[in-house]
């Protein structure tokens, strides 16, 4: 489970990074940046839902004092 979450996170960082790249590279009027950002927010929401789902299924536990 840890690894699925990590892979998700890496993809999020990748989409965020590519948005930065497009921001620097393309001038105004290009839509690549906003598309990358849309991708990054969608992935993030998906990850959040996945974490909740995984917890609900009992796959992961939050760190806490037992």
């Amino acid at each position: 489970m840890k690894y699925i979450i990590l892979v998700f996170f890496i993809f999020i960082i990748y989409s965020l990074g590519s948005a930065l790249y497009y921001m620097m590279k393309d001038g105004d009027g290009s839509r690549r940046m906003v598309k990358a950002l849309t991708m990054r927010i969608s992935l993030s929401i998906l990850l959040f839902i996945f974490v909740i789902f995984a917890f609900w299924m009992g796959w992961i536990q939050p760190t806490g004092v037992t």
């Binding site: 996170f9 948005a19 993030s44 990850l47 992961i60 939050p62 760190t63």
Partner: peptide
């Protein structure tokens, strides 16, 4: 972009600190 960055840092915090 700054806001998205801050957002991702939080997501990282949420995952690495709490989960």
């Amino acid at each position: 972009w700054y806001w998205h960055f801050v957002d991702v840092v939080w997501l990282g915090l949420f995952i690495f600190v709490y989960w």
